[in-house]
Design a protein around this nucleic acid. Sequence first.
DNA 1: GATGAATGAGTATTCATTCAT
DNA 2: CATGAATGAATACTCATTCAT
Lengths: 206, 206, 206, 206
Amino acid sequence: VSTRIVSTPSAPRKTPRQARSRATVAAVIEAAARVLATAGWAGFTTNRVAETAGVSIGSLYQYFPDKLALLDAVRRRHLDDCLAALGEPPPAGTPAAVFIAAWVDNLIAVHQRHPDLHRVLLDEAPADAGLLDPHSAFEAQYLGRYRAAVAAVRPSRPAAEVDIVAVVVSDAIDGVIHGAARRRALSDPAVHAQLVRMLTLYLDSP
Amino acid sequence: VSTRIVSTPSAPRKTPRQARSRATVAAVIEAAARVLATAGWAGFTTNRVAETAGVSIGSLYQYFPDKLALLDAVRRRHLDDCLAALGEPPPAGTPAAVFIAAWVDNLIAVHQRHPDLHRVLLDEAPADAGLLDPHSAFEAQYLGRYRAAVAAVRPSRPAAEVDIVAVVVSDAIDGVIHGAARRRALSDPAVHAQLVRMLTLYLDSP
Amino acid sequence: VSTRIVSTPSAPRKTPRQARSRATVAAVIEAAARVLATAGWAGFTTNRVAETAGVSIGSLYQYFPDKLALLDAVRRRHLDDCLAALGEPPPAGTPAAVFIAAWVDNLIAVHQRHPDLHRVLLDEAPADAGLLDPHSAFEAQYLGRYRAAVAAVRPSRPAAEVDIVAVVVSDAIDGVIHGAARRRALSDPAVHAQLVRMLTLYLDSP
Amino acid sequence: VSTRIVSTPSAPRKTPRQARSRATVAAVIEAAARVLATAGWAGFTTNRVAETAGVSIGSLYQYFPDKLALLDAVRRRHLDDCLAALGEPPPAGTPAAVFIAAWVDNLIAVHQRHPDLHRVLLDEAPADAGLLDPHSAFEAQYLGRYRAAVAAVRPSRPAAEVDIVAVVVSDAIDGVIHGAARRRALSDPAVHAQLVRMLTLYLDSP
DNA sequence: GATGAATGAGTATTCATTCAT
DNA sequence: CATGAATGAATACTCATTCAT
């Protein structure tokens, strides 16, 4: 699953052609993610990222026109992971319990890889209009998955309700996982269980 | 309702004893809130706050040891409002529907009063470990309200479950309201209704 | 004689009120002139100016919003000096020889004070549209002096011719003094004598 | 007419022997001139020149040791054009009017051909000590033409006076054309006429 | 207490130049 | 010879904080 977003506010400055440069770009993005996760947006300085990547500041700027482009690259990679965690939409008639547990599982796994990265990306770092506004392509895809699942559980639900329920489910999952990450309780099975229980009740009730 | 928090990372440098001093402090906090709301965390500079408050930068530093203490003061004022929105804990045996609707109502109202300030405090400004960490006094009070309500709904629930359910409810509300604010849909009655429905189902089920 | 220019591209950031800050501003402008004169536009860095002035870089930026504002201040001071060198316009009927010698004298004196500063200001530093374009207030005043003098020599000259002759005289003086400064020959009396001779012949001939 | 200059501050790193090399050098110089003319000294970056020339930055540095050497090459090409504008020295006894008009014509034409390149070379780019100092070979050739002409007009003039008059004439022409270019008045016939009149009067008078 | 001038470490970013491939 | 990835010193500018007046 890969997010394809067309209009980027700050496109990569130069596409790496040689293997060496592709490695550099990868190292920079990885370092950027680590710096963001450990030092927050306030500690996210380009020099620090370059140093962490073991690369000169000049090399960093050869591939990313500015700091926000770097943030963007990290964000895109992370959002792709989140999207992948939702997998393909379930077939119509699937009971909520079947996929909700898998979703919560996968999303928790994604967040455990870089627990603070997610919070920093969503809460601290400046929102990128292109990626995070309610009409962005990512948001559309993301909510699309939720809508498909909500509709699959009870195909008779009216479209308007499907929309709002999808949003509520998406935001509730985000909030609970977000909070659990803050409390360092992501691996607590009780959190997982209760979240699944709440959503299953909600989705299955008429 | 007033939060009394003891261990702050950066306490006020000096307690204002005279009326003039108290007025200065209030003016500075008010100015800080306005600057945060209108210019965001990035535009939140101490000199700008002092200027907006009509006070010299030196005076500002007489009452706030550093920038974060200022942010803290603003945040505390706002969190007090949120706490007040939860009201007093309901008596045992109260059905979920009775207070959940009121909570959601009040919390949405708080967010609507200063939508930008709230967003900046939660999303842009650096999280203050002292106020937002899982062991902070505020968090304790906040979750205490939730726990009391959860326990009131079904007094037979075991204590451990009460704890986790309170957390899940609190985080789910946060996530949904947070997301609605992001989508500029805070006043949508459908959001309110679905959120209440989900939580009522969850709290009432055994 | 003082140039009064209204629309400045980058106005001083803050007007110094205390004596201490007025001294700082003066020191910075003086240092800027010296750095420009000795190191050229390429060597004109804000940090170097601050260091030369014995002032922190922060203080420099408290009074000058950016590098160009600093350049501007130096330029304005220098242009005021040049304007003063032309003195008051001569009365009608004055023979060219009377004031031309004085002009050349004074202008050479101005250039000798900071020979390279003049060249750098006019040739190397980026032209400030506000000060150097053909319609600027300074240019107008400057050429006004020349026109008045040209008209005084032979009052019967048509206005259109007065204009063009004033421009040619002004530019010729500039060119010769400019070249003499480059050749380190500003104090050569022969240059002075020949320049005066050329201009006198030109202005006196019908 | 070709300037042969011996002591250059930074000579070409390697003399191109093969046809391909010579073509590369020519392409780079041409690109450099175009970049200078269109983007000014501030936009004159080696990478941009290389890109414009369709050559790798490495190749550029194979023929030019540094940026100034590149600037130098462009300047030299342009100064050759100026030298050519002066043509061969006139025979003894030639009246000033005969060649002065032609000189002014030709020099104005040279400046009009690439007005921006000329301005950038003279005004923005750092003066190259090697080419513009009073003892440079170019300056010598250039002033030599003027001296020959000055002497030709009135052969009885003493040598010392010939020298200084040549300098004054050269600088005056430079100043007036320079100023006219600044005022976008290069094609104004009045400028041409007045400049010729001033110089003719000056050179013909005893 | 109050003021605001002064400080300077820190930030993002550029660009001439080198050198491994 | 040619390439272009990599380098890093240098630059303009900000802003939290101090302290002399």
